[in-house]
Write a protein that binds this DNA or RNA. Sequence first.
DNA 1: AGCATGACTAGGC
DNA 2: AGCCTAGCCATGC
Length: 113
Amino acid sequence: MKSSTGKCGPAGGDTLAERIKRVIRRIPRGRVASYGQIAALSGHPRAARTVVWILHSSSGKARLPWHRVINSRGTISLRPGCGCEEQRARLTAEGVGFDSAGRVDLRRHGWRP
DNA sequence: AGCATGACTAGGC
DNA sequence: AGCCTAGCCATGC
């Protein structure tokens, strides 16, 4: 019995947010995943925008490898001055290489669960 | 209850 | 090949 209301609370629950966070933590080091991919693995293939919100909401708080999350083109979506340089530095440190166009080779570093 | 925000994505011109 | 538009999902005021 948890509560008479029937709700156990979002903690450890099946909320999309918790699920998305969980998926992001599963991204192995040296690999990157796209927002849409994470959303799909969370059960909502079109909730890429929600993934964005999660990162904003937990940016710097939760221990999420936020730097391993990029867009479907393999480029960093962050705007200059908002941590995009840090993201690139972290990925580079993990062995993820960027080409002259600032793109990651998803065929090589893309996360494939 | 409705509108605005957010690091998106796919498709069309 | 590059830019624009519409669609999607969840939260905050």
